[in-house]
Structure formats: C-alpha cells, structure tokens
C-alpha cells in the first residue's frame, strides 16, 4: 500500500428527489489498499459504488477515480476498474474459458495476451481441467474465485467487490481472501463490501456508513480501540444502531 490516492471523494452527495442517499461523503482510498466499505442495508453503499464506477452521477462534490473525473470521464474510469458482485458476474451458459475471453475482449486485450494469461490463470486456480465446463455446472466457490480473477484479468487500477463471499463455504471464503491479498500486494486497490464482520478485519481500513453518512473511517484496530470492542462485529453494532 502506498500513500498515493487512487480514489478521492470530496463532499460527495447524491439526492433522489427529497431523499439524500449520500450525504457529504469525504474519503481517500490509497493505491494497493484493501478498503472495506461497510454499512447497514439501505445506508447508501450501492449508490456510492455506482458513482465511483462511473455508472451514476453525483448531485454534487468533487470525485476522482483512478485520476479521472466522475462527471466527465466515466468511460476512462470504466476502462481502469474491475467489478464483481455476488449476484451477477459470469454468464452461466458460457464456459469458463469463454467467459474469460469475453471480459478480456471487452477491456480491449489482445488475442495473444488473452490466450497466454488464460492458461496461466487456469493453472493457478487449478481449473485447467474445467476450462470447457459451463459456468452453471461448476460449484459456487469456484464461480466466485473465477469471477474475481476475471474482474482483475485486465489488470485494472481498482477492483470493486460487492459482497463477493455471500453464501460461500468457510474454506473457500478464506481462499478467496488469499486472492484478494495477492491482488492488493500487486498494487491493485481493492474496494470491498461485506456483511461478514471477520472479513472487515482483513481490510487495511474500513468506513462505516449509516443513513447516507460516513460515521467512522479508520483501521480496524483503531476502531476497536476507540469503541472499546473486541472485534469489528461489536464496533458495527455500536455504530450502526
């Protein structure tokens, strides 16, 4: 992790009619950092993520993602990020290999490069034997690891993970976090939401949102000290209600 800011949000606000979904958010995320973006359901996390991914415009504020402006340079932002959610990431009726090729092509990677990197990835994940299987025929744990690997295949500056480990078995969940650590060590910034509070403790820093506002932002250790709690679960219960 470096001290170079890769996401910078100053006074980010988003209103839908009279409803303020994001109320004056201020935060920086650093290069190579694992940043946990926590909050109760309905706190405004998804709204903020959509803005940071260039899919929605803020009502006001100055926000830069990977050096690009969220009002004017949304296409540049999209080229420089990866995204994965629990709900949708891979095409069920395409094979493992076809999914990788599809996403890599969208991001403009060259055929030769895709081929070489695909083999490398499948070997690393021990998936080589399953490369021609359709996504719908592989276990959930594999899907999630593959979806993550696909999201960082084009070597983006930032990867957004929206509840990536929901419903995954405890062993796979830990293997998944190993992939996250490796990715961050390579300098890719990881921006992650989760409802598992033990996973919040794997992050370098976490922010906690409540009713559209960021109510806490620090390292897990500092938050536990500040709120006199033995883990992040306690911190969350104290802050978010």
């Amino acid at each position: 992790m470096t001290n170079t800011s890769i996401i910078s949000a100053k006074n980010l606000s988003k209103k839908f009619g009279n409803f303020t979904a994001n109320d004056n958010l201020n935060f920086e995320v650093y290069e190579g950092e694992i940043f946990g973006f926590l909050g109760a359901n309905g706190a405004g996390k998804t709204t903020a993520i959509k803005i940071l991914c260039g899919l929605s415009k803020p009502s006001s504020g100055k926000i830069k993602v990977a050096g690009f402006d969220v009002y004017k340079q949304t296409e540049d932002i999209k080229k420089n990020i990866g995204y994965m959610s629990q709900k949708f990431s891979l095409y069920e009726d395409l094979t493992v290999k076809e999914n990788i090729r599809f996403y890599a092509s969208i991001y403009g990677m060259k055929k030769k490069e895709i081929k070489a990197k695909t083999d490398e990835l499948l070997n690393k994940l021990n998936f080589a034997h399953a490369k021609d299987k359709k996504i719908k025929d592989i276990p959930l744990g594999w899907k999630q690891k593959l979806a993550f690997s696909t999201a960082v295949f084009h070597n983006p500056k930032i990867v957004f993970l929206d509840e990536p480990t929901g419903g995954v078995d405890p062993v796979t969940r830990r293997e998944f976090w190993n992939l996250i650590y490796e990715t961050a060590n390579k300098g890719i910034t990881v921006f992650v939401t989760t409802h598992y509070m033990d996973e919040a403790e794997y992050c370098d820093r976490v922010s906690i949102m409540d009713a559209g506002k960021i109510v806490a932002l620090d390292t897990p250790i500092n938050l536990m000290k500040k709120y006199n709690s033995k883990n992040m679960d306690e911190v969350f219960l104290k802050i978010a209600r």
């Binding site: 909050g39 109760a40 359901n41 706190a43 629990q86 509840e163 929901g166 419903g167 409802h195 509070m197 679960d233 969350f236 219960l237 978010a240 209600r241």
Partner: peptide, 13 residues
Amino acid sequence: DEPTTGVDAVSRK
C-alpha cells in the same frame, strides 16, 4: 430458509 442472507449485522441480531 436463509432469512438473514445478505442482511447486515444489526438487522440479523
């Protein structure tokens, strides 16, 4: 059947 999946820690409690 999984009443608390995807539900935040406070609502789960």
